[in-house]
Amino acid sequence: MRIKGKPHISIIRDENGIPKVVGKDLNDLLFGLGYCHAMDRGIQLMLMQTLGKGEACLKLQDTDEMFEIDTFFRRFNFCGNTAAEIEKFTPTEKEQLQAYCDGINQRFAEKKPWELTKLIGFKSFHWEIQDIIMMTRMAGFLTLAQSQGEIELLFIELVQNKIPKKLLGELFPGILGNYDEEVISEITLPSKIIPDSVKWHSSANPLMASNNWVVNGDKSASGCPILANDPHLEVNRLPAVWY
């Protein structure tokens, strides 16, 4: 696939639809990456930008529920003071970030995701460097908050299921302190990480996680090693939809 006005850039997809961007330099590759993201994940870009700026009521649906969502995101101010952050980049870095943004915007100019116009009625969309910073902040905060919350829930469940302190100390080295087992046993959880159907000590429920693993070539059909680099998905989602 060739990109209009970019003769040095080509996008080649394998049998699984995973793209490979070919270009003459890094700026070409970043432009192509942005183009691919807009093509494959355009609706996600739009939704994350809308949520991060606290504009769900304005652009999606003017309801009390959306107002609460806007209030949540505006309170954290993920898009605040991005100009100062941009000034910390070198001219080369700004050029590279802009190339990525240009790739996104060119694809949207050529063809918008059908959801934007038919379902939501979006008339325009533009991606800028400050949106990259906002997305980085959102991903870092939301991922950390979710992970921390799940770890705390897991710890409570472990204590309530009488897992010995010695084993808990191995799972959470140096951070437990003198927790009050009696108080923790009285906590009522809204939901459980480990369902009641799973027997403790013998098995564990598969959890969502950020995974990095590699399979030796001796165990693959091709004889080549297989690397899964941080797919954020269960193994049954391979090949990963993230790239």
Rank of each mutant, 00 (worst) to 15 (best):
M1E: 08
R2Q: 08
R2I: 11
R2A: 14
G5P: 02
G5C: 08
K6Q: 07
H8I: 10
I9M: 00
D14H: 10
G17Y: 11
I18Q: 01
P19W: 00
V22H: 03
D28I: 02
L29C: 08
F31C: 01
G34F: 09
H37C: 01
R41Q: 07
I43V: 05
T50Q: 04
L51R: 02
G52R: 01
G54E: 05
G54C: 02
E55K: 06
A56T: 14
C57K: 09
C57E: 15
C57F: 09
L58F: 13
L58Q: 10
K59N: 09
L60N: 00
Q61M: 07
T63N: 04
T63E: 05
E65P: 00
E65M: 10
M66F: 15
E68Y: 09
E68A: 14
I69R: 01
I69P: 01
I69Y: 15
D70S: 03
F72G: 04
F72T: 09
F72R: 08
F73P: 01
R74M: 10
R74H: 13
R74K: 08
R75V: 02
N81G: 03
A84D: 01
A84N: 04
E85R: 05
E87Q: 12
K88L: 13
T90C: 05
T90Y: 10
E93H: 08
K94H: 08
Q98T: 06
A99V: 06
Y100E: 07
D102N: 15
G103M: 09
R107H: 07
R107Q: 06
R107I: 12
E110I: 01
E110R: 01
K111C: 12
K111S: 11
K112C: 02
P113V: 15
P113E: 15
T117W: 01
T117H: 03
K118M: 07
G121D: 10
F122R: 02
K123R: 07
K123N: 09
F125Q: 01
F125P: 00
H126G: 07
D131E: 10
I132V: 14
M134V: 14
R137H: 08
T143L: 00
T143Q: 12
T143I: 12
L144E: 14
L144N: 09
Q146P: 03
E150L: 09
L153M: 11
L154P: 02
F155L: 05
F155H: 03
F155W: 07
F155K: 06
I156H: 00
V159N: 00
Q160G: 02
N161D: 04
K162Q: 00
P164V: 15
K165T: 03
K166C: 03
E170F: 12
F172E: 00
P173Q: 08
G174L: 05
I175F: 08
E186T: 13
I187F: 15
T188Q: 09
P190V: 14
I193N: 03
V198S: 07
H201R: 09
H201V: 13
A204C: 11
P206W: 13
L207C: 06
L207R: 08
M208N: 04
A209G: 12
W213Y: 14
W213Q: 14
V214Q: 12
K219H: 15
A221G: 06
G223F: 13
G223Y: 13
C224Y: 11
L227N: 07
L227A: 15
A228V: 14
D230I: 12
L233N: 06
N236I: 11
N236A: 10
P239M: 07
P239F: 15
W242L: 15
Y243L: 11
Y243H: 10
